[in-house]
């Protein structure tokens, strides 16, 4: 007989459910079956009404973030074999976000935060396209390369207790993105982004819990980026204080 695994999947259909509940499905066990494969199998063969997000199946698109046994993970990068012998395998929508349907979270607040930090190259004078690309040495690229690996999956927001308590907090990915552009030698927009970083909802809501860096599937280390942002904001505060003492306006 084929070995099966019980997967408890969170269901929530706003038109008929008052609150989320768990439904159990039996999935044939296989060594190389990912949680995403299991969810697709449930949807294809057992219950076509199950809703979940996914696309690339290889940890690039960042769509399939879910809570697996209470831990934020990419369903495509997590395998049934990792839970073999465990009492339960429970999949639910990402923590700290409103649930739209079943495993689908409403991540619009997170997307807004990403846009807030102006994650693009800001230049005081744009050079014409004919002048070619803005050039950069490998050393200059190395300064921000790790922070540019983010795939916007939102796992760090599901992990962050501060974002859970105050959704106004810009959060790990947005602050990392701000730091990524502030460290880019081609960028001249740090002073604009610092206004957001300097605020309570910027770097200063972080209490360095560090869970964001543990759950990041691309080893981006948002906690380190935020701490670098704190140093930058600290220096900015001191410079601003000095300017005020010299009679200049508060920036």
């Amino acid at each position: 007989m084929t070995e099966t695994v019980t997967v408890r999947v969170q269901r929530y259909r706003p038109e008929e459910d008052q609150e989320p509940w768990a439904q159990s499905f039996e999935v044939p066990y296989s060594e190389d079956l990912s949680i995403l494969d299991a969810l697709n199998q449930i949807k294809d063969q057992q219950d076509p009404t199950l809703s979940h997000r996914w696309s690339c199946r290889m940890a690039i698109c960042g769509s399939c973030g879910v809570m697996i046994n209470g831990e934020p993970r990419l369903a495509c990068k997590t395998f049934l074999r990792d839970y073999r012998g465990k009492d339960a395998l429970e999949v639910r929508a990402l923590d700290n976000f409103p649930i739209e349907r079943d495993l689908v979270s409403d991540i619009s607040g997170f997307i807004d935060h990403l846009e807030t930090v102006q994650p693009w190259l800001i230049r005081s004078d744009e050079q014409p396209v004919s002048a070619g690309a803005y050039r950069q040495t490998p050393e200059q690229m190395q300064r921000y390369a790790a922070f540019s690996q983010c795939i916007n999956c939102g796992l760090c927001y599901a992990a962050c207790p501060q974002f859970g308590r105050d959704p106004a907090f810009l959060g790990p990915a947005a602050l990392t993105l701000a730091q990524r552009y502030n460290l880019d030698s081609r960028d001249e927009g740090a002073s604009q982004r610092m206004n957001w970083l300097n605020a309570e909802a910027g770097v200063w809501s972080c209490t360095f819990v560090g869970y964001c860096s543990q759950v990041c599937p691309k080893d981006v280390d948002p906690a380190a980026a935020i701490n670098q942002g704190k140093v930058a904001s600290d220096i900015n505060y001191a410079v601003n204080l000095f300017n005020i003492l010299r009679g200049k306006d508060d920036a």
């Binding site: 206004n195 957001w196 300097n198 605020a199 309570e200 909802a201 910027g202 200063w204 704190k230 904001s233 600290d234 505060y237 001191a238 601003n240 508060d250």
Partner: peptide, 15 residues
Amino acid sequence: MRRSHEPIAWSLFGA
């Protein structure tokens, strides 16, 4: 956005 005064506490904490 209003500037946070947390840098004062954080500097002393860091030191």
